[in-house]
Design a protein around this nucleic acid. Sequence first.
DNA 1: TGAGATATGTCAATAAGGCTGACCCAAATT
DNA 2: AATTTGGGTCAGCCTTATTGACATATCTCA
Lengths: 167, 167
Amino acid sequence: MTLPRPDPDAAPLRSSSEAVPHDLIELLFFAYRDFVGDPDRILADYGFGRAHHRVLHFVQRRPGLTIAELLDILQITKQSLNRVLKELVEKGYIEQRTGRQDKRQRHLHTTATGQDLALRLVRLQAKRINRALASVGPEAAATAAQYLSALIDPSEQPKVNRLLGKP
Amino acid sequence: MTLPRPDPDAAPLRSSSEAVPHDLIELLFFAYRDFVGDPDRILADYGFGRAHHRVLHFVQRRPGLTIAELLDILQITKQSLNRVLKELVEKGYIEQRTGRQDKRQRHLHTTATGQDLALRLVRLQAKRINRALASVGPEAAATAAQYLSALIDPSEQPKVNRLLGKP
DNA sequence: TGAGATATGTCAATAAGGCTGACCCAAATT
DNA sequence: AATTTGGGTCAGCCTTATTGACATATCTCA
């Protein structure tokens, strides 16, 4: 099966002086797909999906996170969050603790089981990333991080930087 | 609302000597989300979703693509592809031409309308990427491309390289 | 020529992960 | 005491994906 080559004349940029970096567009699609594919396969054994992974990941990373903070990070509705969070709590991967100062808040923590799974998943993703960095040279790490960071909505960047601990 | 900082001692890497680049893991999530968010908003006006976008994009990029080739790129089932492809054809964004040598094949092409939409979307994504490149320096483009490419499953890399026209 | 492989299309059922809208309670704030 | 905030929940809907089964046309090869 031979794929046709991209046709350079197919889309002349008449009304735009900006170049279109097709490779960066398509590579992000393929890279992201394979990147989340690894965890997906494991999560399926637990009856979890991608949404559970994200919740587990950020709770593991930021123990004590509240619901509101998690909603702000994930940018989904509380109904969507609640479904997966409830399952993670019921199955014993995440624990909710009522806030001490503000008793309305629920602070989220991974249980020992939750930590095991979160670590297993994050190591799997780290493996892929480290393999990539090894192949392009470790100097690329900083550049890649800066590039990905700059792709984020400027309005979201402060939040993400805080999240990553880079104020 | 103040987010707690990542807890560096929360997940000691007892059973792994590999470092875990949390920033690169999380940045990929945020970057991808915002990257596909732009087109999503536009597509909603047309009654299309992300799946339609991917089909339209690759057909625009590789005019004459067959169904089998597209399935191989997207890695979804033909039933999934068929639903969105049918809608794109019915609404006049994509055209199917029966193969000349092999009459079983359908060669896919964007219509004029399809090209307009595809270009609009690709320019939007290019804008975000070019903004990012401008902020980190254009030298970063090659590094970012290499890094993203190296994230892809090694078994898939030849295919992607062919697709991008870099053999 | 006839058998089998290939390319595509389609039906039906199911699941995951999102959404909106409408409520509810308890606790904090003013 | 009244209002706002943090969180939970019900119900219904959409999109994208899946599996499995089957249909049809066309191509290839013995």
